[in-house]
Design a protein around this nucleic acid. Sequence first.
DNA 1: CTATTATTGTGTTGTTTTGACACATTTATA
DNA 2: TATAAATGTGTCAAAACAACACAATAATAG
Lengths: 231, 231
Amino acid sequence: MNHYAHSTRLLVAIDCIIFGFDGEELKLLLIKRRFEPEKGKWSLMGGFVNEEEDLEVGAERILHELTGLHNIYVEQLQTFGKVDRDPVERTLSVVFFALINIHNHDEESVKSHSACWISLKQMPKLIFDHEKMVQIALERLRYKAALHPIGFELLPQQFTIPQLQKLYEAIYDLKLDRRNFSRKILSTGLLLDTGEKNVNSATKKAVLYRLNKEKYESNFNNFWYFMPVTT
Amino acid sequence: MNHYAHSTRLLVAIDCIIFGFDGEELKLLLIKRRFEPEKGKWSLMGGFVNEEEDLEVGAERILHELTGLHNIYVEQLQTFGKVDRDPVERTLSVVFFALINIHNHDEESVKSHSACWISLKQMPKLIFDHEKMVQIALERLRYKAALHPIGFELLPQQFTIPQLQKLYEAIYDLKLDRRNFSRKILSTGLLLDTGEKNVNSATKKAVLYRLNKEKYESNFNNFWYFMPVTT
DNA sequence: CTATTATTGTGTTGTTTTGACACATTTATA
DNA sequence: TATAAATGTGTCAAAACAACACAATAATAG
Protein backbone atom coordinates (compact mmCIF):
# COMPACT_ATOMS: atom_id res chain seq x y z
CA MET A 1 0.00 0.00 0.00
CA ASN A 2 2.69 2.54 0.86
CA HIS A 3 3.89 3.90 -2.44
CA TYR A 4 6.58 5.86 -0.63
CA ALA A 5 8.30 2.90 1.00
CA HIS A 6 10.97 2.13 -1.57
CA SER A 7 12.12 5.67 -2.32
CA THR A 8 15.45 7.00 -1.16
CA ARG A 9 15.72 9.28 1.83
CA LEU A 10 18.35 12.00 1.54
CA LEU A 11 20.29 14.14 3.94
CA VAL A 12 19.06 17.72 3.71
CA ALA A 13 21.18 20.67 4.80
CA ILE A 14 20.42 24.35 5.02
CA ASP A 15 23.14 26.82 4.06
CA CYS A 16 22.94 30.54 4.64
CA ILE A 17 24.51 33.34 2.67
CA ILE A 18 24.72 36.35 4.94
CA PHE A 19 25.34 39.74 3.35
CA GLY A 20 26.50 42.82 5.23
CA PHE A 21 27.69 46.30 4.27
CA ASP A 22 30.33 48.22 6.22
CA GLY A 23 29.90 51.55 4.46
CA GLU A 24 32.44 50.75 1.78
CA GLU A 25 32.26 47.13 0.73
CA LEU A 26 29.75 44.34 0.45
CA LYS A 27 30.73 41.49 2.75
CA LEU A 28 29.81 37.92 3.57
CA LEU A 29 29.78 36.29 6.97
CA LEU A 30 31.77 33.07 6.53
CA ILE A 31 32.85 30.42 9.01
CA LYS A 32 35.70 28.00 9.40
CA ARG A 33 34.21 24.55 9.20
CA ARG A 34 34.48 22.67 12.48
CA PHE A 35 34.28 19.05 11.37
CA GLU A 36 35.47 16.69 8.66
CA PRO A 37 35.56 16.65 5.74
CA GLU A 38 37.16 19.98 4.85
CA LYS A 39 37.60 20.83 8.54
CA GLY A 40 39.15 24.28 8.96
CA LYS A 41 38.21 25.42 5.46
CA TRP A 42 36.05 28.45 4.72
CA SER A 43 32.37 27.66 4.38
CA LEU A 44 28.91 29.09 4.51
CA MET A 45 27.09 28.76 7.81
CA GLY A 46 24.83 25.75 7.67
CA GLY A 47 23.34 22.77 9.39
CA PHE A 48 21.08 19.81 8.84
CA VAL A 49 17.30 20.12 8.77
CA ASN A 50 15.78 18.83 11.97
CA GLU A 51 13.10 16.20 11.83
CA GLU A 52 10.28 18.39 13.13
CA GLU A 53 11.34 21.72 11.69
CA ASP A 54 10.10 23.67 8.68
CA LEU A 55 12.80 24.85 6.29
CA GLU A 56 12.32 28.54 7.08
CA VAL A 57 12.46 27.80 10.78
CA GLY A 58 15.67 25.87 10.26
CA ALA A 59 17.18 28.79 8.36
CA GLU A 60 16.23 31.16 11.17
CA ARG A 61 17.68 28.77 13.75
CA ILE A 62 20.98 28.63 11.90
CA LEU A 63 21.10 32.37 11.35
CA HIS A 64 20.33 32.99 15.00
CA GLU A 65 22.95 30.53 16.13
CA LEU A 66 25.63 32.48 14.29
CA THR A 67 24.46 36.08 14.64
CA GLY A 68 22.23 36.12 17.69
CA LEU A 69 19.63 37.91 15.56
CA HIS A 70 15.95 37.25 14.99
CA ASN A 71 13.55 38.70 12.41
CA ILE A 72 16.08 39.45 9.74
CA TYR A 73 15.52 39.55 6.01
CA VAL A 74 15.69 35.99 4.69
CA GLU A 75 14.74 34.62 1.31
CA GLN A 76 15.00 31.12 -0.10
CA LEU A 77 17.51 31.12 -2.95
CA GLN A 78 17.34 27.65 -4.41
CA THR A 79 18.16 24.04 -3.66
CA PHE A 80 21.44 22.52 -4.71
CA GLY A 81 21.24 18.83 -5.36
CA LYS A 82 24.09 17.58 -7.53
CA VAL A 83 24.63 13.93 -6.68
CA ASP A 84 28.29 14.36 -5.78
CA ARG A 85 28.24 17.79 -4.17
CA ASP A 86 29.17 16.35 -0.78
CA PRO A 87 31.90 13.68 -0.78
CA VAL A 88 30.65 11.91 2.35
CA GLU A 89 27.09 11.21 1.33
CA ARG A 90 24.56 12.72 -1.02
CA THR A 91 23.18 15.82 0.68
CA LEU A 92 20.71 18.33 -0.65
CA SER A 93 21.30 21.90 0.38
CA VAL A 94 18.42 24.33 0.60
CA VAL A 95 20.14 27.70 0.39
CA PHE A 96 18.82 30.89 1.96
CA PHE A 97 20.24 34.35 1.72
CA ALA A 98 20.00 36.93 4.46
CA LEU A 99 20.62 40.66 4.64
CA ILE A 100 21.67 42.11 7.98
CA ASN A 101 23.04 45.30 9.43
CA ILE A 102 26.70 44.44 9.82
CA HIS A 103 26.91 46.12 13.24
CA ASN A 104 23.93 44.36 14.77
CA HIS A 105 25.20 40.86 15.35
CA ASP A 106 26.37 39.16 18.52
CA GLU A 107 30.18 39.32 18.49
CA GLU A 108 30.49 36.46 20.94
CA SER A 109 28.69 33.87 18.87
CA VAL A 110 30.44 35.04 15.72
CA LYS A 111 33.78 34.56 17.46
CA SER A 112 32.84 31.16 18.83
CA HIS A 113 32.12 29.96 15.30
CA SER A 114 35.41 31.34 13.99
CA ALA A 115 33.30 33.45 11.66
CA CYS A 116 34.50 36.53 9.77
CA TRP A 117 33.09 39.25 7.59
CA ILE A 118 34.93 38.91 4.32
CA SER A 119 34.75 41.29 1.39
CA LEU A 120 33.29 39.82 -1.78
CA LYS A 121 36.40 41.03 -3.54
CA GLN A 122 38.66 38.99 -1.28
CA MET A 123 36.67 35.80 -1.14
CA PRO A 124 38.74 32.76 -0.22
CA LYS A 125 38.13 29.36 -1.73
CA LEU A 126 35.01 27.77 -0.22
CA ILE A 127 34.14 24.13 0.34
CA PHE A 128 31.99 22.00 -1.95
CA ASP A 129 29.73 24.08 -4.21
CA HIS A 130 29.52 27.03 -1.82
CA GLU A 131 31.23 29.38 -4.27
CA LYS A 132 28.53 28.66 -6.81
CA MET A 133 25.92 29.37 -4.15
CA VAL A 134 27.53 32.72 -3.41
CA GLN A 135 27.68 33.58 -7.08
CA ILE A 136 24.00 32.86 -7.54
CA ALA A 137 23.12 34.73 -4.36
CA LEU A 138 25.01 37.78 -5.58
CA GLU A 139 23.16 37.62 -8.88
CA ARG A 140 19.87 37.42 -7.00
CA LEU A 141 20.83 40.32 -4.76
CA ARG A 142 21.76 42.45 -7.76
CA TYR A 143 18.59 41.48 -9.52
CA LYS A 144 16.35 42.13 -6.58
CA ALA A 145 18.00 45.33 -5.38
CA ALA A 146 17.53 46.86 -8.82
CA LEU A 147 13.78 46.41 -8.56
CA HIS A 148 12.86 46.32 -4.88
CA PRO A 149 14.02 48.32 -1.88
CA ILE A 150 15.93 45.51 -0.16
CA GLY A 151 19.09 47.59 0.09
CA PHE A 152 17.70 49.23 3.21
CA GLU A 153 17.98 45.90 5.05
CA LEU A 154 21.75 46.33 4.95
CA LEU A 155 21.79 49.84 6.42
CA PRO A 156 21.36 51.19 9.94
CA GLN A 157 17.99 52.69 10.91
CA GLN A 158 19.23 56.15 10.05
CA PHE A 159 21.31 56.72 6.96
CA THR A 160 22.20 59.40 4.45
CA ILE A 161 21.59 59.38 0.72
CA PRO A 162 25.34 59.27 -0.01
CA GLN A 163 25.59 56.17 2.21
CA LEU A 164 22.74 54.55 0.32
CA GLN A 165 24.44 55.39 -2.94
CA LYS A 166 27.69 53.81 -1.74
CA LEU A 167 25.74 50.67 -0.94
CA TYR A 168 24.31 50.48 -4.44
CA GLU A 169 27.74 51.17 -5.90
CA ALA A 170 29.15 48.30 -3.82
CA ILE A 171 26.41 45.91 -4.86
CA TYR A 172 26.89 46.61 -8.56
CA ASP A 173 30.57 47.52 -8.47
CA LEU A 174 30.08 50.73 -10.43
CA LYS A 175 29.80 54.49 -9.97
CA LEU A 176 26.48 56.32 -10.06
CA ASP A 177 25.71 59.96 -10.70
CA ARG A 178 25.09 61.54 -7.30
CA ARG A 179 22.44 63.97 -8.48
CA ASN A 180 20.39 61.54 -10.52
CA PHE A 181 20.58 58.93 -7.77
CA SER A 182 19.32 61.38 -5.19
CA ARG A 183 16.45 62.48 -7.42
CA LYS A 184 15.39 58.89 -8.12
CA ILE A 185 15.56 57.77 -4.50
CA LEU A 186 13.70 60.78 -3.16
CA SER A 187 10.97 60.39 -5.78
CA THR A 188 10.11 56.93 -4.42
CA GLY A 189 8.74 58.45 -1.23
CA LEU A 190 10.54 55.73 0.74
CA LEU A 191 12.72 58.17 2.67
CA LEU A 192 11.64 60.23 5.66
CA ASP A 193 13.75 63.19 6.69
CA THR A 194 14.68 62.81 10.38
CA GLY A 195 15.78 66.44 10.68
CA GLU A 196 19.13 65.25 11.99
CA LYS A 197 22.48 65.32 10.25
CA ASN A 198 25.33 62.89 10.03
CA VAL A 199 27.93 64.10 12.57
CA ASN A 200 30.64 61.71 11.38
CA SER A 201 31.22 63.42 8.10
CA ALA A 202 34.47 65.36 7.71
CA THR A 203 32.89 67.95 5.43
CA LYS A 204 29.32 69.01 4.81
CA LYS A 205 27.03 66.95 7.03
CA ALA A 206 24.45 65.01 5.08
CA VAL A 207 20.80 64.75 6.12
CA LEU A 208 19.88 61.56 7.93
CA TYR A 209 16.83 59.74 6.62
CA ARG A 210 14.90 56.78 7.87
CA LEU A 211 12.80 54.30 5.94
CA ASN A 212 9.11 54.95 5.41
CA LYS A 213 8.20 51.52 6.79
CA GLU A 214 4.57 51.75 5.78
CA LYS A 215 5.35 52.50 2.16
CA TYR A 216 8.22 49.99 2.19
CA GLU A 217 6.01 47.16 3.33
CA SER A 218 2.86 47.91 1.37
CA ASN A 219 4.68 48.58 -1.91
CA PHE A 220 7.58 46.16 -1.54
CA ASN A 221 6.56 44.09 -4.53
CA ASN A 222 6.21 47.04 -6.86
CA PHE A 223 8.83 47.47 -9.54
CA TRP A 224 10.95 50.47 -8.64
CA TYR A 225 13.81 50.50 -11.18
CA PHE A 226 16.49 51.79 -8.81
CA MET A 227 19.31 51.21 -11.23
CA PRO A 228 19.88 53.09 -14.48
CA VAL A 229 19.94 50.95 -17.60
CA THR A 230 23.16 52.51 -18.83
CA THR A 231 26.08 54.01 -16.86
CA MET B 1 34.12 10.48 12.96
CA ASN B 2 31.08 10.84 10.70
CA HIS B 3 29.32 14.03 11.73
CA TYR B 4 26.51 13.22 9.32
CA ALA B 5 25.54 9.90 10.87
CA HIS B 6 22.84 11.00 13.28
CA SER B 7 20.98 13.42 11.03
CA THR B 8 17.58 12.64 9.58
CA ARG B 9 17.18 11.54 5.99
CA LEU B 10 14.07 12.86 4.26
CA LEU B 11 12.00 11.82 1.30
CA VAL B 12 12.49 14.30 -1.53
CA ALA B 13 9.97 14.75 -4.31
CA ILE B 14 10.04 16.84 -7.45
CA ASP B 15 6.82 18.52 -8.57
CA CYS B 16 6.37 20.23 -11.90
CA ILE B 17 4.13 23.13 -12.79
CA ILE B 18 3.55 23.03 -16.53
CA PHE B 19 2.15 26.13 -18.21
CA GLY B 20 0.61 26.22 -21.67
CA PHE B 21 -1.31 28.75 -23.76
CA ASP B 22 -4.07 27.82 -26.21
CA GLY B 23 -4.42 31.22 -27.84
CA GLU B 24 -7.00 32.43 -25.36
CA GLU B 25 -6.24 31.19 -21.86
CA LEU B 26 -3.29 30.27 -19.72
CA LYS B 27 -3.51 26.62 -18.72
CA LEU B 28 -1.85 24.07 -16.47
CA LEU B 29 -1.20 20.43 -17.22
CA LEU B 30 -2.57 18.56 -14.22
CA ILE B 31 -2.88 14.85 -13.49
CA LYS B 32 -5.20 12.63 -11.52
CA ARG B 33 -3.08 11.07 -8.79
CA ARG B 34 -2.70 7.32 -9.25
CA PHE B 35 -1.95 6.16 -5.72
CA GLU B 36 -2.90 6.71 -2.10
CA PRO B 37 -3.25 9.00 -0.33
CA GLU B 38 -5.52 11.34 -2.28
CA LYS B 39 -5.76 8.81 -5.13
CA GLY B 40 -7.90 10.17 -7.98
CA LYS B 41 -7.52 13.79 -6.88
CA TRP B 42 -6.04 16.54 -9.04
CA SER B 43 -2.34 17.03 -8.55
CA LEU B 44 0.81 18.40 -10.10
CA MET B 45 2.94 15.91 -11.98
CA GLY B 46 5.71 14.72 -9.73
CA GLY B 47 7.90 11.93 -8.53
CA PHE B 48 10.63 11.08 -6.07
CA VAL B 49 14.24 12.00 -6.63
CA ASN B 50 16.28 9.02 -7.69
CA GLU B 51 19.37 8.10 -5.75
CA GLU B 52 21.84 8.88 -8.53
CA GLU B 53 20.03 11.73 -10.22
CA ASP B 54 20.59 15.49 -10.08
CA LEU B 55 17.51 17.56 -9.33
CA GLU B 56 17.36 19.15 -12.78
CA VAL B 57 17.70 15.74 -14.40
CA GLY B 58 14.88 14.45 -12.24
CA ALA B 59 12.69 17.36 -13.29
CA GLU B 60 13.42 16.66 -16.94
CA ARG B 61 12.70 12.97 -16.45
CA ILE B 62 9.32 13.74 -14.90
CA LEU B 63 8.46 16.32 -17.54
CA HIS B 64 9.44 13.92 -20.29
CA GLU B 65 7.43 11.12 -18.76
CA LEU B 66 4.28 13.20 -18.96
CA THR B 67 4.76 15.21 -22.14
CA GLY B 68 7.23 13.23 -24.23
CA LEU B 69 9.23 16.44 -24.63
CA HIS B 70 12.90 17.21 -24.10
CA ASN B 71 14.73 20.54 -23.94
CA ILE B 72 11.86 22.61 -22.71
CA TYR B 73 12.04 25.75 -20.60
CA VAL B 74 12.44 24.70 -16.95
CA GLU B 75 13.31 26.76 -13.93
CA GLN B 76 13.60 25.82 -10.28
CA LEU B 77 10.88 27.62 -8.34
CA GLN B 78 11.55 26.81 -4.71
CA THR B 79 11.50 23.98 -2.22
CA PHE B 80 8.47 23.32 -0.06
CA GLY B 81 9.31 21.76 3.25
CA LYS B 82 6.56 22.19 5.81
CA VAL B 83 6.78 19.31 8.26
CA ASP B 84 3.21 18.15 7.71
CA ARG B 85 2.77 18.88 4.02
CA ASP B 86 2.44 15.18 3.23
CA PRO B 87 0.27 13.13 5.60
CA VAL B 88 2.13 9.86 5.01
CA GLU B 89 5.64 10.95 5.83
CA ARG B 90 7.60 14.15 5.82
CA THR B 91 8.53 14.84 2.20
CA LEU B 92 10.35 17.82 0.76
CA SER B 93 9.20 18.95 -2.63
CA VAL B 94 11.58 20.71 -4.97
CA VAL B 95 9.25 22.51 -7.36
CA PHE B 96 10.07 23.35 -10.96
CA PHE B 97 8.02 25.26 -13.43
CA ALA B 98 8.03 24.62 -17.15
CA LEU B 99 6.71 26.51 -20.17
CA ILE B 100 5.73 24.51 -23.22
CA ASN B 101 3.92 24.93 -26.49
CA ILE B 102 0.54 23.44 -25.70
CA HIS B 103 0.33 21.66 -29.05
CA ASN B 104 3.72 19.98 -28.86
CA HIS B 105 3.20 17.27 -26.28
CA ASP B 106 2.68 13.54 -26.74
CA GLU B 107 -1.07 12.95 -26.47
CA GLU B 108 -0.61 9.28 -25.64
CA SER B 109 1.45 9.78 -22.51
CA VAL B 110 -0.79 12.63 -21.40
CA LYS B 111 -3.80 10.34 -21.74
CA SER B 112 -2.11 7.47 -19.95
CA HIS B 113 -1.51 9.73 -16.93
CA SER B 114 -5.11 10.95 -16.94
CA ALA B 115 -3.68 14.42 -17.43
CA CYS B 116 -5.60 17.48 -18.63
CA TRP B 117 -4.94 21.03 -19.63
CA ILE B 118 -6.98 23.09 -17.22
CA SER B 119 -7.52 26.83 -17.37
CA LEU B 120 -6.12 28.78 -14.44
CA LYS B 121 -9.55 30.29 -14.06
CA GLN B 122 -11.16 26.89 -13.57
CA MET B 123 -8.58 25.32 -11.30
CA PRO B 124 -9.95 22.44 -9.25
CA LYS B 125 -8.85 21.79 -5.71
CA LEU B 126 -5.37 20.25 -5.65
CA ILE B 127 -3.78 17.86 -3.17
CA PHE B 128 -1.48 18.85 -0.31
CA ASP B 129 0.13 22.28 -0.82
CA HIS B 130 -0.01 22.12 -4.61
CA GLU B 131 -2.33 25.11 -4.86
CA LYS B 132 0.20 27.22 -3.01
CA MET B 133 2.86 26.01 -5.42
CA VAL B 134 0.72 27.04 -8.37
CA GLN B 135 0.08 30.44 -6.84
CA ILE B 136 3.77 31.07 -6.35
CA ALA B 137 4.56 29.78 -9.84
CA LEU B 138 2.03 32.17 -11.33
CA GLU B 139 3.56 35.04 -9.41
CA ARG B 140 6.99 34.05 -10.68
CA LEU B 141 5.71 33.75 -14.25
CA ARG B 142 4.12 37.18 -14.06
CA TYR B 143 7.25 38.62 -12.56
CA LYS B 144 9.58 37.08 -15.05
CA ALA B 145 7.47 37.67 -18.15
CA ALA B 146 7.33 41.37 -17.35
CA LEU B 147 11.10 41.61 -17.50
CA HIS B 148 12.36 38.80 -19.72
CA PRO B 149 11.11 37.36 -23.02
CA ILE B 150 9.94 34.01 -21.62
CA GLY B 151 6.48 34.41 -23.13
CA PHE B 152 7.82 33.12 -26.42
CA GLU B 153 8.35 29.70 -24.84
CA LEU B 154 4.56 29.33 -24.76
CA LEU B 155 4.00 30.18 -28.42
CA PRO B 156 4.49 28.23 -31.65
CA GLN B 157 7.58 28.94 -33.76
CA GLN B 158 5.65 31.40 -35.88
CA PHE B 159 3.23 33.80 -34.29
CA THR B 160 1.62 37.18 -34.83
CA ILE B 161 1.88 40.25 -32.64
CA PRO B 162 -1.83 40.08 -31.76
CA GLN B 163 -1.29 36.48 -30.59
CA LEU B 164 1.62 37.57 -28.44
CA GLN B 165 -0.49 40.34 -27.00
CA LYS B 166 -3.26 37.88 -26.15
CA LEU B 167 -0.69 35.79 -24.31
CA TYR B 168 0.41 38.73 -22.19
CA GLU B 169 -3.20 39.64 -21.54
CA ALA B 170 -3.85 36.08 -20.38
CA ILE B 171 -0.81 36.03 -18.11
CA TYR B 172 -1.76 39.30 -16.42
CA ASP B 173 -5.52 39.07 -16.83
CA LEU B 174 -5.83 42.58 -18.27
CA LYS B 175 -6.20 44.43 -21.58
CA LEU B 176 -3.30 46.17 -23.27
CA ASP B 177 -3.26 48.94 -25.84
CA ARG B 178 -2.63 47.28 -29.21
CA ARG B 179 -0.59 50.10 -30.67
CA ASN B 180 1.68 50.68 -27.69
CA PHE B 181 2.22 46.95 -27.27
CA SER B 182 3.19 46.52 -30.90
CA ARG B 183 5.63 49.42 -30.74
CA LYS B 184 7.26 48.15 -27.57
CA ILE B 185 7.63 44.57 -28.82
CA LEU B 186 9.00 45.58 -32.22
CA SER B 187 11.49 47.96 -30.59
CA THR B 188 13.11 45.05 -28.73
CA GLY B 189 14.46 43.62 -31.98
CA LEU B 190 13.38 40.15 -30.80
CA LEU B 191 10.97 39.62 -33.70
CA LEU B 192 11.92 38.63 -37.22
CA ASP B 193 9.38 39.12 -40.02
CA THR B 194 8.87 35.80 -41.81
CA GLY B 195 7.18 37.45 -44.80
CA GLU B 196 4.22 35.12 -44.29
CA LYS B 197 0.78 35.95 -42.99
CA ASN B 198 -1.59 34.20 -40.65
CA VAL B 199 -4.14 32.43 -42.88
CA ASN B 200 -6.46 31.50 -40.01
CA SER B 201 -7.64 35.01 -39.38
CA ALA B 202 -11.18 35.85 -40.48
CA THR B 203 -10.33 39.46 -41.27
CA LYS B 204 -7.07 41.21 -42.03
CA LYS B 205 -4.25 38.65 -41.94
CA ALA B 206 -1.54 39.52 -39.45
CA VAL B 207 2.15 39.20 -40.23
CA LEU B 208 3.82 36.07 -38.84
CA TYR B 209 7.02 36.63 -36.92
CA ARG B 210 9.58 34.27 -35.49
CA LEU B 211 11.90 34.76 -32.56
CA ASN B 212 15.35 36.24 -33.12
CA LYS B 213 17.01 33.34 -31.29
CA GLU B 214 20.43 34.94 -31.21
CA LYS B 215 19.19 38.11 -29.58
CA TYR B 216 16.85 36.12 -27.34
CA GLU B 217 19.67 34.01 -25.97
CA SER B 218 22.40 36.59 -25.69
CA ASN B 219 20.19 39.24 -24.11
CA PHE B 220 17.87 37.03 -22.12
CA ASN B 221 18.97 38.41 -18.77
CA ASN B 222 18.54 42.03 -19.77
CA PHE B 223 15.67 43.92 -18.25
CA TRP B 224 13.10 44.53 -20.96
CA TYR B 225 10.09 46.04 -19.18
CA PHE B 226 7.44 44.41 -21.35
CA MET B 227 4.56 45.47 -19.17
CA PRO B 228 3.36 49.02 -18.66
CA VAL B 229 3.42 50.23 -15.08
CA THR B 230 -0.13 51.58 -15.24
CA THR B 231 -3.17 50.36 -17.26
C1' DC C 1 -20.62 43.92 -56.72
C1' DT C 2 -20.79 47.00 -52.89
C1' DA C 3 -21.33 48.10 -48.02
C1' DT C 4 -20.33 46.57 -43.55
C1' DT C 5 -17.64 44.89 -39.87
C1' DA C 6 -13.74 43.12 -37.48
C1' DT C 7 -9.02 43.17 -37.30
C1' DT C 8 -4.36 44.81 -38.22
C1' DG C 9 -0.70 48.34 -39.26
C1' DT C 10 1.11 52.98 -38.76
C1' DG C 11 1.27 57.80 -37.18
C1' DT C 12 0.73 61.90 -33.88
C1' DT C 13 0.97 64.48 -29.68
C1' DG C 14 1.63 66.15 -25.17
C1' DT C 15 3.63 64.62 -20.85
C1' DT C 16 6.93 62.40 -17.99
C1' DT C 17 11.32 60.42 -17.18
C1' DT C 18 15.99 60.17 -17.94
C1' DG C 19 20.99 61.11 -18.26
C1' DA C 20 24.41 64.57 -18.41
C1' DC C 21 26.03 68.43 -16.39
C1' DA C 22 26.54 73.45 -13.59
C1' DC C 23 26.43 75.92 -9.56
C1' DA C 24 25.88 77.00 -4.75
C1' DT C 25 26.35 75.53 0.23
C1' DT C 26 28.51 73.48 4.22
C1' DT C 27 32.37 72.26 7.30
C1' DA C 28 36.92 70.70 8.70
C1' DT C 29 41.60 71.84 8.01
C1' DA C 30 45.54 74.35 6.31
C1' DT D 1 40.60 83.42 5.90
C1' DA D 2 41.38 80.42 2.00
C1' DT D 3 41.04 75.74 0.45
C1' DA D 4 39.26 71.30 -0.43
C1' DA D 5 35.94 67.76 -0.12
C1' DA D 6 31.41 66.52 0.18
C1' DT D 7 26.45 67.62 -0.14
C1' DG D 8 22.07 69.81 -1.97
C1' DT D 9 19.52 71.82 -5.76
C1' DG D 10 18.71 73.18 -10.55
C1' DT D 11 18.74 73.02 -15.81
C1' DC D 12 18.05 71.10 -20.31
C1' DA D 13 17.75 68.27 -24.30
C1' DA D 14 16.68 63.60 -25.59
C1' DA D 15 14.08 59.52 -24.96
C1' DA D 16 10.15 56.92 -23.53
C1' DC D 17 5.49 56.65 -22.74
C1' DA D 18 0.35 56.61 -22.68
C1' DA D 19 -3.53 58.04 -25.10
C1' DC D 20 -5.62 58.46 -29.25
C1' DA D 21 -6.70 58.99 -34.78
C1' DC D 22 -6.75 57.14 -39.12
C1' DA D 23 -5.86 54.04 -42.96
C1' DA D 24 -5.57 49.27 -44.96
C1' DT D 25 -7.14 44.47 -45.35
C1' DA D 26 -10.35 40.68 -45.93
C1' DA D 27 -14.46 37.95 -44.98
C1' DT D 28 -19.39 38.30 -45.25
C1' DA D 29 -23.99 40.14 -45.74
C1' DG D 30 -27.13 42.44 -48.66
